[in-house]
Amino acid sequence: MTTLPRLPAPALMLGSVLSIQFGQAIGKQLAGTVGASGAVALRLALASVVLLLLYGPSLPRSRADAVLILGFGTAIAGMNLIYPALVLLPLGLASALQLLGPISLALLTSRRLRDAGCAVLAGGGVWLFHAPQGARFPLVGVLLALAAGASMAAYLLLSKRAGAANSGGGPLALAVTWAALLTLPLGVANQGAELLEPRVLLIGVVVAVVSAVLPYSLELAALRRLPTRTVGVLTSLEPASAGLAGVIILGEHLDLVQWAALACVGAASAGAVVRRKGERRECLTDTAPPSVPREAVGGDRTGQQA
C-alpha cells in the first residue's frame, strides 16, 4: 500500500468504487451458492485474515480508540446488508438505493452550493434508476439496501476518524475483524461445512480481496485527503459501475432510463471533483488530521497514508 500516497485522492475513490462493485457482482453469484449470510461471512472473515496479515495491528490503547473501532466495524457489518438485498434486487438498483446514505451525508455536511447541487443531481439519478416503468421490487430488498446505505454513511464518517487518528491500516484491520465476528455465526449456522468447500473458499477469497480489502484500503487513504461530503458524492459512481458489472458479469439488463440515471450520478461525481485551486487548498487544510500541522499539509504526506 506504499504507492497509495502518490495517487490523487479522487483516483483512489474511483478505484475503490470499481473494485467494490465488480466484487459485489461476484459476491452475488457466491450468494446464489451459499446464501447471503454465507457470502457475507466468507467475505468478512477472509478479508479480516488478509488485513491482519497485511497491517499487523496492535490492540487499541484507549477506551476511545476501542469504541471507534467497534463502531467502525459495526458500520462495516451493516453495509453487508447489501448482500441479502442483492438476492432480491438487481445489482445496479441495490447499489443506487444504498447510495442514498452517502448522498444524505453529503447534503447534511456540505456548506457549498455546488456540493449540495451535486448531491441533488445524484439523488435524482437514483430516483430515476429505481423507478423504471412498470417495475415492482420486494419491499424487504429495498429496506435492506436502505439500511446498508445508512451504514455506509456511518462507515464514511468513522473511516475518516480512524484514518485521522492512525497513519496505518491497523484500525481498518481490527474493524473488519469485529465485523467478521458479528456476521460469522449466522453464516456458519445457515451453511455449515459448505463454506469450507475448496471452490467456495476460492471464490470467497476473490470476493474478500476485490470487494473489501482493496476498496476499504483505498477509501481509508482517500478520506485522509478529501472531505467526507466530497467522498459521499464521489460514491455516486457506484450505481454506474454496478450497472456495468451487472451487465458484464451477471448479464442483467438496463433500459435507457436507467442508463440516463447512471449518467446523472456520474455527472454529480465529476462536479464534486472539479474545484478551483483556492477551493482545493482550503479542502486540504480543512481535512488534515489533528496531529498534522496545517502548514505541513502541502508538503510530504507519505507518512500519513495507508
Rank of each mutant, 00 (worst) to 15 (best):
M1V: 11
T3C: 14
T3Y: 11
L7Y: 07
A9R: 03
S16G: 14
I20H: 00
I20L: 02
Q24R: 04
G27K: 10
K28N: 00
G32M: 07
T33L: 10
L42G: 12
A45V: 14
A45H: 11
A45F: 13
S48D: 14
V50M: 06
Y55Q: 10
S58N: 03
A64V: 10
I69L: 10
L70K: 03
L70N: 03
G71Y: 00
G78I: 03
L81V: 10
Y83C: 13
L86K: 02
L86F: 00
V87W: 02
L91D: 06
A96V: 02
A96I: 05
Q98D: 14
Q98Y: 08
L99N: 04
L105T: 06
A106G: 10
R112L: 11
L113H: 04
L113M: 06
R114T: 06
A116R: 10
A119V: 10
A122F: 03
V126D: 04
H130A: 14
P132L: 00
G134R: 13
G134Q: 11
P138N: 07
L146D: 02
M152Q: 05
M152L: 08
L158M: 07
L158R: 05
R161F: 15
N166R: 04
N166A: 14
N166Y: 14
L174R: 13
L174D: 08
V176H: 03
T177H: 09
L181W: 04
L181R: 03
P185M: 12
P185V: 08
G187N: 01
N190C: 06
Q191T: 09
G192K: 05
G192N: 02
A193G: 15
L195V: 15
L195S: 05
E197W: 02
P198T: 14
P198Y: 09
R199M: 13
R199Y: 04
R199C: 09
R199P: 02
L201H: 09
S211A: 15
V213H: 00
L214E: 01
P215S: 08
L218I: 01
A221D: 02
A221F: 00
R225D: 02
L226H: 07
L226K: 11
G232L: 05
A240I: 12
S241P: 09
L244C: 09
A245S: 06
I248T: 10
L250K: 03
L250C: 08
L250W: 06
G251R: 04
G251V: 10
H253L: 12
L254G: 09
D255H: 07
L256T: 15
A260F: 12
A261V: 03
L262A: 13
L262D: 03
A263D: 10
A263N: 11
C264F: 12
V265A: 15
A267S: 10
A267E: 12
G271F: 08
G271H: 07
G271I: 07
R275Q: 13
E279M: 08
P290M: 07
S291Q: 05
V292H: 09
R294T: 15
E295R: 08
G299D: 14
D300L: 08
Q304S: 07
